[in-house]
Amino acid sequence: EADPRLIESLSQMLSMGFSDEGGWLTRLLQTKNYDIGAALDTIQY
C-alpha cells in the first residue's frame, strides 16, 4: 500500500499540473522524503 505522505504530496503536485508518467514524480518525491518544496527545487534546476 502506498505511503499516505506520498499520496498527499503526489496529488498536490498533480493538481499543480505535473504528471507522473512513468512514475518519475513518485520516485522523486520518495527521494525527497515527500517534500514538495525540495522536489520543485530539483525540477527547477
Rank of each mutant, 00 (worst) to 15 (best):
E1T: 13
E1A: 12
E1D: 13
E1F: 14
E1L: 12
E1G: 13
E1K: 11
E1R: 10
E1Y: 14
A2C: 11
A2T: 12
A2G: 11
A2K: 14
A2W: 13
A2N: 13
D3H: 08
D3G: 06
D3A: 05
D3S: 07
D3V: 05
P4K: 12
P4W: 12
P4H: 11
P4L: 11
P4Q: 12
R5P: 04
R5A: 08
R5L: 09
R5I: 06
L6E: 05
L6D: 02
L6S: 04
L6I: 06
L6M: 08
L6F: 07
I7T: 13
I7D: 08
E8S: 12
E8Y: 14
E8A: 14
S9F: 10
S9D: 01
S9M: 08
S9W: 07
S9P: 08
S9Q: 05
S9I: 07
S9R: 06
S9G: 09
L10K: 03
L10H: 02
L10N: 00
S11F: 14
S11D: 09
Q12C: 13
Q12W: 11
Q12K: 15
Q12S: 10
Q12G: 05
Q12E: 10
Q12N: 08
M13V: 03
M13D: 00
M13A: 03
M13G: 01
L14Y: 10
L14H: 07
L14G: 05
L14P: 00
S15Q: 12
S15E: 12
S15L: 11
S15D: 09
S15M: 13
M16D: 02
M16R: 07
M16Q: 04
M16W: 11
M16L: 11
M16C: 06
G17D: 01
G17N: 03
F18I: 05
F18C: 06
F18Y: 12
F18D: 01
F18H: 04
S19M: 09
S19N: 14
S19D: 13
S19W: 07
S19I: 10
D20V: 03
D20T: 02
D20P: 02
D20H: 01
D20L: 03
D20I: 03
D20R: 00
E21A: 11
E21H: 12
E21I: 11
E21W: 08
E21P: 05
E21D: 12
G22D: 12
G22Q: 08
G23W: 05
G23I: 02
G23V: 02
G23H: 08
G23N: 06
W24F: 07
W24S: 04
W24H: 05
W24Q: 05
L25S: 00
L25C: 04
L25T: 01
L25I: 07
L25F: 02
L25Y: 00
L25Q: 00
L25G: 00
T26W: 04
T26K: 05
T26Q: 06
T26V: 06
T26Y: 05
T26F: 03
R27L: 11
R27Y: 09
R27V: 09
R27Q: 09
R27F: 08
R27T: 09
L28P: 01
L28R: 00
L28Q: 00
L28S: 00
L28N: 00
L29D: 01
L29I: 05
L29Q: 00
Q30W: 08
Q30E: 12
Q30D: 05
T31Y: 14
T31G: 11
T31F: 14
T31Q: 15
T31N: 13
K32S: 11
K32V: 15
K32Q: 09
K32C: 14
K32W: 09
K32I: 09
K32Y: 10
N33M: 10
N33T: 05
Y34T: 01
Y34P: 00
Y34F: 10
D35F: 04
D35A: 05
I36V: 14
I36N: 01
I36G: 01
G37M: 15
G37V: 13
G37I: 14
G37E: 13
G37L: 14
G37P: 11
G37W: 15
G37Q: 15
A38R: 09
A38F: 05
A38H: 07
A38Q: 10
A38M: 10
A38L: 12
A39P: 02
A39F: 04
L40W: 07
L40V: 07
L40D: 02
L40G: 02
D41S: 11
D41I: 14
D41N: 12
D41W: 12
D41M: 15
D41H: 14
T42L: 11
T42D: 14
T42Q: 15
T42Y: 15
T42V: 13
I43Y: 04
I43N: 02
Q44T: 09
Q44V: 11
Q44Y: 15
Y45V: 14
Y45H: 15
Y45D: 14
Y45P: 10
Y45G: 15
Y45I: 15
Y45C: 14
